[in-house]
Amino acid sequence: MRKILLPFILSLFMNSAFGQYNQGARLTAMGNASAAVKDIWSLNANPAGITSQKTPIAALNYARYLFGDELSEQSFAFVLPFNNNFAGVSINRYGISEFNEIKAGFGLAKSFGEDLSIGVKANIHQIKITNYGNATTFSVDAGVNYALSKQIGLGLYVNNPSSQAYKATYAETYIPTSVHLGATYTPSNKLILAATVSKDFERKFDVGVGVDYKFYELLSLRGGLSAKPFKQYFGIGLNYQKLIMDIAVESHPQIGYTPQIGLSYAF
């Protein structure tokens, strides 16, 4: 019985709570207000955001959903800068052994001068349910970042504009089609405020707000909010030379706390 219900339950949660793919512990702690924030995990948000990396960088992220027995999300990302171009690879796996979804993608971004950058990403999605089978599909993400001034940055990106979906009828999971518009305000080199308005075509408008505050050279404090559903986020980042460790906790009124941890290394 449990096994029969499980895919249904999981896909329900997936649809109601995880329209977006994990954006790493730093962006999550900032309320996923990531449209105009630059990070290696912009690969899973606005692909134009990977253009801030100066050297090759690799990152791992692990999120644990406390309501499931072994439900988790694992992600890997790698970005390689060359000239003013940037190439990135990311892989996400979400689920348990009987049910999981994998999204793997390849992104390309280019910066045009200091202010403007554009990125695109192609993804392959695969859903695997034990005793039912597999389904595969493709999607595209595209985004742009623009620095309005030294303090204010803007970002816009779309996920899956062509509304690709799994062909298989037993897979209720859908690939979200959404538009995200955001801004950042950087009043000092220690502080980033970010806001993003998101519209998933299947759902209501969502607004996220986040703060990243570099308290010491070593330590960053982060917090965020998102409106629909109402979620609070907190996190810290530890920056030690080339190694960065980020921790985030997301609090959802029904699902409870979701902790995650990420590691990245800049070569």
Partner: peptide, 12 residues
């Protein structure tokens, strides 16, 4: 209550 920068303060 934290003064994050000269223009931003936060309360938790």
């Amino acid at each position: 209550l934290v003064s994050l920068s000269s223009t931003v303060s936060a309360v938790v």
